[in-house]
């Protein structure tokens, strides 16, 4: 379990309740609610899940099950510059794993982790729909195509 124990502020609780209410507190809207919550808070710690559980009347165990099933959802806060390496088939066969290894080495992070200073977080995802540019790396909204392991240092330098 990788959750960080936080307490919510009243305005955070109200925000989560607003999000749930915007989907009429319907249990089947769970994934949409989680998307909105992650969009707003950046991640989905236990406390947020508890509030969603109460609002949508879904056991918190089920919500945790959904969050741990879909790799898009995270319980750890993303870094200021979230790095995603595409591991889809096209990127993979064109050497995405070596690129990922290079990022791991340079940052000293494993997939799913965030650097201590909160600057970078590392994740892998499946296909961003830019297979022609494989292997693809995304940092925030910026896309890097045809990335080679040797490019990694230069890319990271842009964010110093």
């Amino acid at each position: 379990m990788s959750s960080i124990k936080i307490e919510l502020r009243q305005e955070d609780v109200d925000k989560i309740k607003d999000i749930c209410a915007s989907f009429n507190n319907e249990p089947q809207e769970l994934i949409n609610v989680l998307h909105k919550c992650q969009e707003h808070f950046g991640y989905l710690p236990a406390e947020i899940q508890e509030v969603v559980s109460q609002e949508l009347s879904i056991p918190v165990a089920k919500i945790y099950g959904v969050i741990t099933f879909y790799s898009f959802f995270t319980m750890t806060p993303k870094g200021k510059h979230p790095i995603s390496i595409c591991m889809g088939t096209a990127c993979y066969v064109r050497g995405a794993e070596k690129v990922l290894d290079e990022f791991k080495k340079e940052l000293g992070l494993e997939v799913g982790q965030t650097s201590k200073d909160g600057k970078f977080s590392l994740s892998s995802l499946r296909c961003v729909g830019a297979c022609g540019l494989a292997p693809v790396v995304m940092i925030g909204d910026k896309t890097y195509g045809r990335v080679a392991p040797d490019d990694v240092k230069d890319i990271l330098r842009e964010y110093e």
Partner: peptide
């Protein structure tokens, strides 16, 4: 609830 996926999948309480 079933949590995690693949080899890591288990049936567990919330937050394991």
């Amino acid at each position: 609830s079933a949590v995690n996926r693949g080899f890591m999948a288990v049936v567990a309480p919330a937050f394991e």
